[in-house]
């Protein structure tokens, strides 16, 4: 089965793009390919001039640890770790020297400086997603993937989260790949691409 065909995409540094499409269109599969979590059976995906499919597990793990971050629809915080430890987790994985200070800085950036010790079960959905955003930015990624980041949130909270995400992204100058089916949200990105029948089409504003 062919999922994607004749699919060409170049994303410039610091750009924000939205990939929109119906459910089942293959948005998430495309994301795993772009992030180097999966390898295409044909074709090539390069990051910073390096072809991802030529990298071994170790190198791809290094890439994720240093350059790529994710924000998920269902937050994916570890339930038994408090907010601070959840943000520290990626820093610990790549062996940062002072994970505590960085994690605290980013939690205060998302307005949770007072809730470092709180566990996910003690936080609202919006707050959990803010912890996830802090975790994503804590590693200063060059590339940030956000997969339906407001999907599990009510409209008002969703707006606040998106405002924060775009503000921080602008501040950090990271490249943002946003996957969504929300056209209003997509409109906030510099480029919008629609995935349909395994092909991407640029959508004008």
């Amino acid at each position: 089965m062919t999922l994607f065909s004749d699919l060409n995409l170049t994303i410039g540094k610091g750009e924000s793009i939205a990939i929109i499409g119906r459910s089942g269109a293959g948005k998430s599969t495309l994301l795993s390919l772009l992030a180097g979590l999966d390898t295409p059976s044909q074709g090539s995906i390069s990051f910073d001039g390096k072809a991802l499919e030529t990298l071994d597990d170790e190198a791809r793990a290094q890439l994720r640890a240093h350059h790529i971050s994710f924000i998920f629809q269902s937050f994916h915080l570890l339930p038994e770790l408090n907010a601070l430890d959840n943000v520290r987790l990626p820093l610990e994985i790549r062996g940062d020297k002072d994970p505590d200070a960085i994690a605290k800085h980013w939690l205060s950036q998302v307005g949770l400086a007072e809730r470092l010790d709180h566990f996910p079960s003690q936080l609202s959905g919006g707050e959990q997603q803010r912890v996830a955003i802090a975790r994503a930015f804590a590693t200063s990624p060059g590339l940030l993937f956000a997969d339906e980041p407001t999907g599990n949130l009510d409209e008002e909270t969703g707006h606040q989260i998106i405002d924060q995400l775009f503000r921080l992204n602008a501040q950090e100058g990271a490249t943002l790949v946003l996957i969504t089916h929300d056209t209003e949200l997509a409109a906030r990105c510099q480029r919008r691409l629609s995935l349909h029948n395994g092909q991407l089409h640029e959508v004008s504003a």
Binding site: S28, L31, S32, L37, D38, F72, Q73, S74, H76, D147
Partner: peptide
Amino acid sequence: LLEQCYRLLRSAT
């Protein structure tokens, strides 16, 4: 496997 990871996380949505 690495390629299962993202799918697993998605499936927990």
